[in-house]
Write a protein that binds this DNA or RNA. Structure first.
Lengths: 368, 368
DNA sequence: CCTTGGGGCATGCCCGCTTA
DNA sequence: TAAGCGGGCATGCCCCAAGG
């Protein structure tokens, strides 16, 4: 308690110390996404095989209309990690609290995929989906404005959206893209969803993970595109036959100020209570979103009406009036001030008078 | 002091009364744009005729690269007016202080044109220009996003922008449009400017003005379009031969919250200082922005604008303002008077208090 | 219940300060 | 001096209360 000069809980240097200690531990340098629970998809697949294969393949497609977003490590213990040290804070940040990446548009996000046991001939599909249930069935699409750059004539898709020529137009409709040389850009005409599939190479010597570079080509806020609806990226581990043998999901917000927005969302998060205590102790509460300009509005509006004609005066007249106004304002200020003082004075006098009268009455009673 | 419950200066009903009085005066019902000063364009035209006509016709084109924005009533005393009563506040408002219209996108703005003497076979061209000098030479164009609606394939213009097919695509590149049946949409390939020309019909019986309905198809803030750069609309009165015989200019901001934005810009305007003090006395200072195209830089420019506009004032408005000022002075007089009364009251109270204390003391002495 | 207006938030963008 | 950061503004849009 000695050096805690503030509210005594934990001061900022303590806090930094702790954070630094944590960071020194290499396992904390990476944000791990480990399996949460085994879903029952294996069972479902069994059912599928026993009935109508074609129908069920569609139902199971990772890019179907209602894609599954459940975490599913599967037989390869599929997991993904982010290395916070690979980015300038400017480009992207990860919120542990929200399990969410905040990233600027078109900035590279390196994602590490880990398989154990490792295996060849597997691929990872990245598919963006809206994380709000209401929109989960809607494909995440690029906004018109951003598409204009690569495809001004709107030629990347056929009229009926059955065929996708995005590849000829810088993958214009793919919100999630990868710079991986062998990336395959996929389009599911049934669900109208675009996704990108990257073959998982073997880990580099000495490494346990395979790194894939992704970037996002629209902002979450893009009008006519994602329209501020939060999204996640579903990463599915697939065999060369397209069977899903693993899945991990990552919330993403693509925005101009990742750091600011992360902080805001964390502050708004009810879970933050505990965490925020850490630094709330050392500085005033951030936002309470309870501004009130209230009463001033009206008078201001009236004011504007008054000013109405002022503008059109010729300079001389304008100056005259302005000086009068300034003088008037000054007068009013003084008067208002004086008046407040006077009122106070009167209040005080009344108070003391009351007391005096009381005292007087008491005395009178005593003396009588 | 009786009914003035606030700071005692002038209560809102008093104030409204004054404003209403002003509004009762018909000249205050309409915002007039009257001639400021005769520009020297007539002279320039003479010069033109005496030299190379073709070259100079280009130079004088109202849609040239650097369009003239000076007010020029010309031989017909061309002026324009807005009738504030024709709009829901929601659609548009006019700021007399800023001489600027704030209007929502695609909302109808009725503009009254007045000619005296009246004449047939004249037309009015409406051309949007950036009001900041840095951008005056750049044509005001629609944003890509809004153009997509009417012309998804970008076919309204030929590759080299020499030919304009906007007419086939709902005049897709015209920011300023008119619902007038005989409106002619013009394109100047030399400057790449779009404008709309409307024939001035004769005034309806009993009216002195011709009303034309305009609307704006992009917001001033549109990305890749106007990009928050403030604009004006230049209205040029033209003969059937295309000679300019009059000009008036109107600042416009196309936005989602016209009322709010008007109030903000007015509050930021240095001219409002004096008036704002009126209620600053009772509440803290508002805001002091300094953004790129917005307030502060513009305010410098506006000063010139003001000086120019200032000459436009007629005695009537000056007198009206004077009467407001007189009313203010009177109010201050009353306030001062009240203050004197309060002082007297206090003096009397002090006096009686002193007496009471004396009496009290005397009683104490007697009783002891 | 539908319309209208006000208030407030979300978020892109800009500016000026700071630091390497 | 250039890049990064923090701070602030501008502005579209959503929500909610109030009035027809």
């Amino acid at each position: 308690m000695d050096s805690n000069t503030d509210t005594g809980f934990m001061n900022s240097s303590d806090y930094e110390q702790i954070i630094n200690d944590l960071k020194a531990d290499s396992t904390f340098c990476e944000y791990k996404f480990s399996p949460s629970e085994i879903t029952d998809y294996v069972k479902m697949e069994d059912v599928a095989d026993s009935t109508d294969e074609h129908k069920l393949v569609i139902a199971y497609s990772p890019t179907c209309t209602l894609p599954c977003t459940d975490s599913y490590p599967g037989p390869y213990n599929f997991e993904l990690m982010l290395d916070g040290s690979t980015s300038h804070k400017r480009s992207w940040v990860y919120s542990e609290m929200l399990q969410k990446v905040f990233i600027d548009i078109n900035k590279t996000l390196l994602i590490q995929f880990r398989l154990s046991p490792n295996a060849g001939d597997l691929r990872v599909r990245a598919l963006p989906v809206y994380s709000i249930a209401d929109f989960l069935n809607i494909p995440v699409q690029r906004c018109a404005l951003h598409m204009l750059n690569s495809d001004p004539q709107h030629q990347a898709h056929s009229e009926d959206n059955k065929v996708c020529y995005c590849a000829n137009y810088s993958w214009v409709r793919h919100v999630v893209q990868s710079s991986h040389a062998a990336a395959i850009y996929d389009y599911d005409s049934a669900s109208d969803r675009h996704s990108v599939v990257v073959p998982l190479d073997s880990p580099q010597p000495g490494s346990e993970t395979v790194v894939v570079a992704y970037h996002f080509t629209c902002k979450t806020s893009c009008p006519q595109g994602m329209q501020r609806r939060p999204i996640s990226v579903v990463f599915t581990l697939e065999t060369s036959q397209g069977d899903v043998v693993g899945r991990q999901c990552l919330s993403v917000k693509i925005c101009s100020c990742p750091k600011r927005d992360k902080e805001r969302e964390e502050a708004d998060n009810p879970l933050s209570e505990g965490w925020s205590m850490l630094d709330t102790c050392t500085k005033p509460k951030k936002r309470s979103s309870d501004h009130k300009y209230g009463s001033s509005k009206k008078s201001k509006q009236d004011n504007n009406h008054q000013i109405k004609a002022v503008n059109q005066l010729d300079q001389k007249k304008y100056d005259d009036i302005k000086s009068i106004l300034m003088a008037l304002c000054e007068q009013i200020g003084l008067l208002a001030e004086n008046q407040n003082k006077l009122m106070e004075m009167i209040a005080r006098m009344e108070d003391s008078q009351t007391k005096m009268i009381d005292a007087l009455l008491q005395m009178l009673r005593q003396s009588s």
